[in-house]
Design a protein around this nucleic acid. Sequence first.
DNA 1: CAACTAATGCGACTATGTTGCAATAATAAA
DNA 2: TTTATTATTGCAACATAGTCGCATTAGTTG
Lengths: 127, 127
Amino acid sequence: MGILRKTKNLETILDIFRQSNEALSANLLFERLHERMNRSTVYRLLERLEDDGILHSFASMDNVKFYALRQDCISSGDVHSHPHFQCTTCNQVVCLEQEVVFPTLNRMRIEEAQIFLKGQCNSCLSQ
Amino acid sequence: MGILRKTKNLETILDIFRQSNEALSANLLFERLHERMNRSTVYRLLERLEDDGILHSFASMDNVKFYALRQDCISSGDVHSHPHFQCTTCNQVVCLEQEVVFPTLNRMRIEEAQIFLKGQCNSCLSQ
DNA sequence: CAACTAATGCGACTATGTTGCAATAATAAA
DNA sequence: TTTATTATTGCAACATAGTCGCATTAGTTG
Ligand SMILES: [Mn+2]
Ligand SMILES: [Mn+2]
Ligand SMILES: [Zn+2]
Ligand SMILES: [Zn+2]
């Protein structure tokens, strides 16, 4: 379906994503909202925002779904995908700019690609 | 810790991995065992086999942990990683041969990388 | 065989995410 | 503005993936 009504909850969640450019899981969002929004509502809003192409999602290495604002990247022909990065020190998850293009492989048709990187972010490295 | 005793359960699970070269989740394994092994035991054996470097693991796009036999690939210096692929038709998950090397990026230290691809496998394409 | 203790089964528990349903609140129509 | 319509919400119950404590079982060692 998608978003049909501009509710207070919707704006609250969008504001959180707009205020920092990190990726967030439903639980991280729930914490930032100081638990003032129902857990189901958080999950449902994330789903609707993704359906509408406002957010995109990916799985972290510990099997948690993260969401981030979708940058307008148009995929045409080959499968495009940008990597996601999680800092092992501060735990922040971010989208990386650099697009990766996957060529048509051997004997299989690639339709979707996900690259997840872990390591130390810039600010944690310089501490 | 790791494996200290060669039990029947251990051999059963290893046999399943050796008999086909696909990657399996704890639940898929549990099903193949016709539920004749305790669920906790399956999880614990997978963990121990990974600790011992016999299996390696990765997250699928739907947040499920998969395990597969570790091919002897020695990572030195840069971060090495091979992609994993899931067929959207038959759902099989496999390790892909082709290694991907991640160079030291911009302003962050990459320590671990995971590439997950989805699409149609060879045998499903030719049906 | 006996002693030691890793491994197992069981049940309870946690974490993440989903769903049905009645109440609420955006939005459209009057 | 008021009313009608229905998307959205909160709540509780559920689903699925995975973890943990503890008593029992079974490899391993001597
Ligand atoms: Mn992203
Ligand atoms: Mn692999
Ligand atoms: Zn950091
Ligand atoms: Zn297939």
